[in-house]
């Protein structure tokens, strides 16, 4: 299905957020995810089903002031 991940359009096979992270080779327990503007906690990613056109944000710790 077609998804927007971190602002970039891509085609993915995954149907859940958890599977999408694995498909895109994301790893580590320090990632935060949001779907269409709402937070999806790590514990809920496996059951969170994706739909065509979903906008996904995958964030991680970065320098900040």
């Amino acid at each position: 299905m077609k998804l927007i991940v971190n602002g970039e359009a891509l085609e993915a096979k995954a149907t859940t957020l958890d599977a999408l992270l694995r498909e895109l080779d994301y790893e580590g327990g320090w990632l935060a995810t949001a779907l269409n503007g709402d937070v999806v906690p790590a514990a809920e990613r496996a059951e969170f089903r994706l739909s065509d056109g979903d906008r996904i944000e995958i964030l991680s710790p970065m320098q900040g002031g």
Binding site: G7, Y26, L59, S60, P61, Q63
Partner: peptide, 22 residues
């Protein structure tokens, strides 16, 4: 120290390096 969250573009590795340092 203050930190932020930004789009992870390196599969989790960029965040991991910074977070390990902190």
């Amino acid at each position: 120290v203050t930190v932020s969250l930004r789009r992870e573009m390196a599969g989790g590795k960029a965040g991991e390096r910074f977070w390990s340092l902190i």
